[in-house]
Nucleic acid binder design. Sequence first.
DNA 1: TATGAATGAGCATTCATTCAT
DNA 2: CATGAATGAATGCTCATTCAT
Lengths: 216, 216, 216, 216
Amino acid sequence: MTNNHAPDDTDTTTLTIDEGSVPAPSKRRLESRRRILAAARQLFVERGYHGTRPQDISKAAGVGHGTFYLHFADKLECFLAFAEEASKELEMFGEQHHTHEAQTLKEGVHEILSVIFNYSEENPGVLAAAMTDINVLATEEMDMPMPDQRWAEQWGDNVKEWQAKGEVAADIDPLFAGHVLLGMIRQVGSYGARAETTKEEVLEKLTQAMIRMLTD
Amino acid sequence: MTNNHAPDDTDTTTLTIDEGSVPAPSKRRLESRRRILAAARQLFVERGYHGTRPQDISKAAGVGHGTFYLHFADKLECFLAFAEEASKELEMFGEQHHTHEAQTLKEGVHEILSVIFNYSEENPGVLAAAMTDINVLATEEMDMPMPDQRWAEQWGDNVKEWQAKGEVAADIDPLFAGHVLLGMIRQVGSYGARAETTKEEVLEKLTQAMIRMLTD
Amino acid sequence: MTNNHAPDDTDTTTLTIDEGSVPAPSKRRLESRRRILAAARQLFVERGYHGTRPQDISKAAGVGHGTFYLHFADKLECFLAFAEEASKELEMFGEQHHTHEAQTLKEGVHEILSVIFNYSEENPGVLAAAMTDINVLATEEMDMPMPDQRWAEQWGDNVKEWQAKGEVAADIDPLFAGHVLLGMIRQVGSYGARAETTKEEVLEKLTQAMIRMLTD
Amino acid sequence: MTNNHAPDDTDTTTLTIDEGSVPAPSKRRLESRRRILAAARQLFVERGYHGTRPQDISKAAGVGHGTFYLHFADKLECFLAFAEEASKELEMFGEQHHTHEAQTLKEGVHEILSVIFNYSEENPGVLAAAMTDINVLATEEMDMPMPDQRWAEQWGDNVKEWQAKGEVAADIDPLFAGHVLLGMIRQVGSYGARAETTKEEVLEKLTQAMIRMLTD
DNA sequence: TATGAATGAGCATTCATTCAT
DNA sequence: CATGAATGAATGCTCATTCAT
């Protein structure tokens, strides 16, 4: 599980000429990783974690099977990188579509949900795949924070802010509410997939439900 | 996927007065199945679907490998039987703890949640395991209704009844609400496992959240 | 392979009241064996030796799985009994359709082939299944005479008789000719199955070919 | 059943001048396949199809279990490759030992039989194993032409040519004769194995029998 | 840095046979 | 004499990972 590989290639900002220790990842290397992650995303979404083999990912990425392990210690690490990427992407997506700072609770909830729904529309299945309960994945260890834990915490932080502004009932436990809200969002995907309805309708219903839950 | 293992269903040309045609499964057979299902439950809960091998189940059940396949066509069928059993059990559990018919929304929600929480306390992890998103399990087939779909629908039915009594806001879509409520419950398990809190506290918080969500 | 079972039930003629040693097989026992063999024949023909499980045979025969082993030491013994039965049946079939004793070579060959062809028409696939090369079946042992060896020898005996009458060239080795004739018959089944032709046509062609081969 | 193992056939977006597009299999890969096929041949001959496990083949070939499936989709595909190889080999063997073009029927038959007998002497059991009735092997599918069908057709073609030269009776159906000749050859192996005789003797006898059968 | 052939422990499943009833 | 549940060694095959090139 520990990454005993080549230097971590997240810091892409180093422009210094190789000072000795951490050589800047070559263009080729980054390109490989990008292709692998893109392929992994598609396959994890389409077939799920257990239905996707590293071989499939490598093949879809157009690289050799060994190259996969040049970038990820194992399959799980690759999945987590995918989930991380999706999370970051959603965050960026939110920042880009963020409109006005000071907003009412209703506006705030609606905007966040809009971001999630729009992202899901553009990237169908990605969030569901990334939220795959990790205890389904790994039998052991699992000390690392799971994506859905982080998301629940983020929702909790939002609730806390709204609470500070007096828009959310004071007797609500923010972290608890964060989990509940996340749960609502997760399961709603299942509803949307089966009921004949539109994204907008679901969005409105969910916004209303959340508001009601959060206010007295 | 269909269980063609059950007592022989071919031409039973018995001339006896049809006492049921399908000879009652022998005690031994039933006992085997019971043991296997009990072992399966424990292992699916402890290690998850993919972490559990038919071999492990057989061993834990104290039967031979082949006996497993005498009762279940394959691993997935065994898992579904486990999920079904859990569902039935929860239902029976509810019926046994059901107290008074006519109840307010708050009493109703609280009671149902109590049942779920108490069942989960007696059978830790069982509901979570049984709700394992089956599309994580089988990429194909899956025409059969998934446990969580059924549960969402049941919650939806409850909401509809409360709505009829005027206790739930009229503008709420019952099926949608059913999904949302199920989502809340599922995720709350994750909260309860991590936050330092008591079952009672979580129960109270969740009841309150649900009530707020359902009323105007 | 050795039959360490109940007394061999071929001698059905004993009418004596149990004199102590070889109790007459009960009606029930014989009926069981008959049913099993009938089922075995059908399945060996339809699915081949390796495609047929003792369980399948028992089920088709409407008896318990254990009953199979009451009559046959193992699957191979059952197959050999089936082959033996087919052989006997063909012989009886021949005797019943046997018309006139003194016959020319052409008449003789034609008659024997007629018997075989007619039997095959009434019992499609049985001879082919019974002739299954036994080295395909058992990896070891195989000291017992295989059905096709016996048939080759029978053809050889026929050739010898015709030779004695001066109808077959004197320089022909009867046993060799027996094998060759058997080979012709076996492969012709494959021809008949694929070429669009009638049984009669094939019969005529084969008779002609055999006659030519045997005469100078 | 199709071999999707061969070097990657997906989008090879190489811009190089198409030198074959499918990268030539590496030496190592070819060597592995060769070793596996060699081991498979020996084991199929010695123990038959059902007596040979992929595991045995891999072990005998000195490669890992998985390597077997890198080259063959399953056991049956491996067997068919073996049969195909034997067929090709026999053909090449024939071409190498082919002496003079214009030949009488007797010379022609004798030469072909010589080739087969000599090949069988150098490769004992190979032809018999390769001719294993495939319907004994696969109950389903089997659209591909079986080795023995092809051989019967080849013999048929030979008969047709001889017929054109007027050396074979005009009233003979070439394809029918092809099957009959193949049948003779197949069964003769069984005779040769049991009767105490020499290869040369059998060859002479069989040549004579075939000639007689084909001429008026 | 990249490759892809090779690996072998591991998996789900089968089936000829046994034995308690 | 009959039953059918039980057995477990064996089978065909997979797949995450390694390593020589």
